[in-house]
Design a protein around this nucleic acid. Structure first.
Lengths: 234, 234
DNA sequence: GTGGCAGAATTGTCGGACAGTCCGATTATC
DNA sequence: GATAATCGGACTGTCCGACAATTCTGCCAC
């Protein structure tokens, strides 16, 4: 079953260095906001060339563990932001040819839950975010592109209002996948706009009134409706 | 409200190059399995130094868009694997101090759905994967570490059996977060092992018989039970 | 076809270099 | 005294050239 010998994989220096730095960050020896030593200094500490350090740093930068403020030169330890991380997941899914069905099932699992918790915990600011997205959809839905963007914004706002980072981070990758399907529905189904608008209104109302069960149910219906619109291809 | 001028952000060369290569991959000009030109060649094509190319390549490698077969020298275009991508999400969440409640809510959203679809679509091989995980838990649950690992394997197997990549990729990051909480429960609650075992048996049975509603319900109960065990801290 | 081999190609790493920019301190100005 | 201009040092982004180790490739023998 399992091999007797494990293949020995040599880790190049830049990978080992990346791992070491990452470990310091995860174990919080390097804490969020701390500035990293300069590349020259790191090169000295690790006893390698600066080029090698730079390659290691690139990895951590991509992971979102290191970053710099706008216009700043020095790198500092940062918390990986959901958006940054989720974009990687999105790309992975897009490249793996996700079907509409897969996307829809995941939405059915995540979005209603997000709506439910949003109704329980939304802050005033988050409520405003929701309202904004909805207003934008109402006002700018003539162009398909902006309409789709507004819908995505709505879902994101719901996830944010749920006050649950895990749900929010699970929801985020769905957005990118959603775009093509949603574009198609809005383009082809005449009544799509009004139905989406009505659904958003109901969901927002339920979240505003903190009626979590209703919020969940309306969101479920909204997403079922989305599938109906998608399946309706003439 | 909004500024007159947007801040100009200069993208360093290595980032631009990474983006260009990424675009070729996403638009499938470079297809999965294709070998990338050598670093020297890329440097010539982009008109930059090889060091710059290397930094760009590191980014794409981290994203999982480039990789190499074991012992191979040349890089080739690869599909980002769920595991690789999800580990980044896990780390992001861990660094953001996710609470047990957040994790639990997300599990309640995703795992029952995964179980439900698994019951509808599981293949024979996936069924075996489930059984294996369950057997391993039964047999090796004396040590807390291996017991936890077996539980994680079970959840992963369910997600895989769901035949839904999006759900699977949403579920994967939960595993790492699950470990500390689960360890605590198994360590402190004497009857945890037997309850988990019973729950797994019921879920597997439902999936085997393709009873999707039951699979979902049992999984819900399983996860509710997990929370009960966690809240029970003496 | 299989196996072996020499030479070419490629990667990982190194050292050094330089322009552009950011930062902190110092000096000049009101 | 507070603010503005100035200046030197530090740091990053990029380049050049180089070399050992390993992989790839075409060729030859069997």
């Amino acid at each position: 079953m399992s091999d007797l010998f494990a293949p020995l994989d040599d880790h190049p220096a830049y990978r080992q260095i990346a791992n070491q730095i990452e470990q310091r960050i995860v174990e919080r020896t390097l804490r969020t906001g701390d500035a990293l030593p300069s590349e020259t200094d790191l090169a000295r500490q690790f006893g390698v060339n600066r080029s090698t350090i730079r390659e290691a740093i690139r990895e951590l930068e991509v992971h979102g563990l290191l970053g710099r403020e706008r216009g700043e030169k020095r790198l500092r330890v940062t918390r990986p932001e959901p958006r940054r991380v989720s974009s990687g997941v999105s790309r992975a899914l897009a490249l793996n040819d996700v079907t509409f069905m897969e996307l829809w099932e995941a939405m059915m699992a995540i979005e209603p839950a997000a709506a439910q918790y949003a109704a329980l915990r939304r802050s005033a600011g988050q409520m405003r975010g929701l309202a904004n997205a909805s207003v934008r959809f109402k006002r700018e839905s003539t162009d398909t592109g902006t309409a789709v963007a507004a819908v995505v914004e709505f879902f994101t706002a719901v996830a944010a209002a749920s006050g649950n980072q895990v749900l929010a981070l699970s929801q985020a990758p769905l957005n990118l996948l959603l775009v093509p399907a949603l574009t198609q529905v809005i383009d082809r189904v005449p009544q799509a706009r009004s139905r989406i608008q009505a659904a958003q209104d109901r969901i927002i109302e339920a979240i505003k009134l903190k009626k979590s069960d209703q919020a969940r149910v309306w969101m479920e219906k909204h997403i079922r409706d989305f599938k109906r619109g998608y399946d309706l291809k003439p």
